[in-house]
């Protein structure tokens, strides 16, 4: 019998059906303090599997463009602009990873090349369809933070 799974499945389906009820912190309201964003920016816990998808998606985080990741050996041509993320969970705690993802410039300083993925502090002349929008959603940020948490050496 699979009652347990069915019930879990139903609960998950209900959650998916109620995105409006989900709370998330707006980009301008995320507080980066001591190089950290201490609390999650959505009330739905990050999903590492979704995070892995957003990590490699060229229209999502596209993290692989700049960061190598040995946990994704099937994805060829990983970039070397930023540091490799192998074992990053052992070096950086989630609150720091979240802050880097949200707005790396608040952590590394204004010179860093890394874009901010959940900030409206962006460059000049943003194309029309991206004005007022962030690269990732709050949930994708949490999902990627959760995925990075799995990268242990």
């Amino acid at each position: 019998m699979n009652w347990g799974k069915t019930v879990t499945g139903l609960s998950a389906a209900m959650l998916v059906c109620m995105p409006a009820a989900m709370a998330e912190v707006a980009p301008g309201d995320v507080k980066i303090e001591d190089l950290k964003v201490a609390a999650a920016i959505t009330d739905q816990a990050g999903n590492p599997e979704e995070g892995a998808k957003a990590f490699k998606d060229t229209k999502g985080g596209n993290c692989l463009a700049c960061h190598a990741n040995k946990a994704m050996p099937k994805d060829l041509f990983q970039g070397n602009v930023g540091p490799a993320l192998d074992g990053v969970a052992g070096r950086y705690e989630p609150a720091l990873l979240r802050a880097i993802l949200v707005n790396s410039k608040a952590v590394f300083g204004p010179q860093t090349v890394m874009p901010g993925f959940y900030t409206l502090d962006v460059g000049k002349n943003v194309r029309e369809e991206s004005v007022g929008k962030t690269v990732l959603t709050a949930q994708q940020v949490e999902d990627i933070v959760a995925y990075l948490g799995t990268l242990k050496e």
Binding site: T58, N62, L64, A65, C66, L76, F77, Q78, G79, N80, V81, V113, P115, G116, D121, V122, G123, K124, N125, V126, R127, S130, K133, V135
Partner: peptide, 25 residues
Amino acid sequence: YTRFGQLNLSCANCHEDLMGKMIRA
């Protein structure tokens, strides 16, 4: 040297500071 766009990048970011690196392929 001006940073443009949602990704906040200048010409110099990639073609001066990071030339020779690989951005994906």
